[in-house]
Amino acid sequence: MTSIDSAGLKRMFDEIAAAIDADKDRLCQLDGVIGDADHGIAMALGFGAVREALAQLDLAATGPTALLNTAAKSFLNAGASSGPLYATAFMRAAAAVKGKAILEDADIIAMLRAMAQGIQDRGKAELGEKTMVDAWLPAAQAAGAAQEAGKTLLESLETALAAAERGAEATKDMIAAKGRSSRLGERSLGHMDPGAASAVTIIKAIRDSLA
């Protein structure tokens, strides 16, 4: 059984920020084919703002819910294009663990599932529309199923990551139905959705930091 406190969650966000920063050029290249080539920069901006905001917190006096709400606000204030989606994700995660000072395995999975649902609700996207939902939703569903089957947190997060990777890869065979890339129609075929690609990077960082 894993026990994660606010310091552990801060480390998770630090790891995500570092992973996104390292991946931003690839994400911009993916976005350059079907979007406006700024996805990596926008995501690095958002998670960089989160990292800075969390560094200011007194972690001993800040519970997981307050920390996640701080992450939501700072990501939104960074002005990143994905800001509303990830702000909603972190607010939903905050609500999912409300009142808990220490998060155990089931809480982490509940947090992941709440994030995916928040992204889907805010973006009003369905599976198969070539968005980050195509990575996030399968990942959350896989993590939940693994946890319910008695798997460890590491095993559940490994399963989630594999599902996200499959989902992101599958976006190459989809025609974009949302956002700027939807204007390309069939020309969006053959290209991975950058939002799905960054979702994989985030879920991998979550696995690496929490498991």
Score class of each variant (00 low, 15 high):
Glu186Asp: 13
Thr131Gly: 14
Val200Asn: 02
Ala139Gln: 08
Ser198Ala: 11
Lys98Trp: 01
Leu189Lys: 11
Ser209Gly: 09
Ala196Ser: 13
Met192Phe: 09
His39Ala: 12
Ala164Glu: 08
Ser156Pro: 00
Ser82Glu: 06
Asn77Gly: 10
Ile203Phe: 14
His39Asn: 13
Ser182Met: 05
Ile175Pro: 04
Gly83Cys: 13
Arg51Tyr: 13
Ala114Pro: 02
Ala22Ile: 08
Pro138Ala: 08
Arg187Val: 04
Thr70Asp: 01
Ala170His: 09
Glu129His: 08
Ala197His: 00
Gly35Tyr: 09
Thr88Ala: 15
Ile4Pro: 01
Gly179Asp: 00
Ala149Leu: 11
Ala110Pro: 04
Arg183Gly: 05
Arg51Val: 15
Gly150Ser: 06
Glu129Met: 11
Ile41Pro: 00
Gly83Tyr: 10
Leu157Ile: 03
Ala71Pro: 14
Leu67Gln: 09
Leu45Thr: 06
Ser198His: 02
Ala95Tyr: 07
Ile108Thr: 08
Gly35Gln: 11
Gly79Pro: 07
Ala114Phe: 12
Arg11Asp: 05
Lys204Thr: 11
Leu189Gly: 04
Asp14His: 06
Arg180Pro: 00
Thr70Ser: 14
Leu9Lys: 04
Glu158Ala: 10
Leu85Gly: 13
Gly123Cys: 10
Ile119Asn: 10
Pro194Ser: 09
Arg183Cys: 11
Leu157Trp: 03
Thr171Ala: 11
Ala37Arg: 09
Leu54His: 11
Ala160Lys: 15
Ala95Cys: 10
Ile20Ala: 04
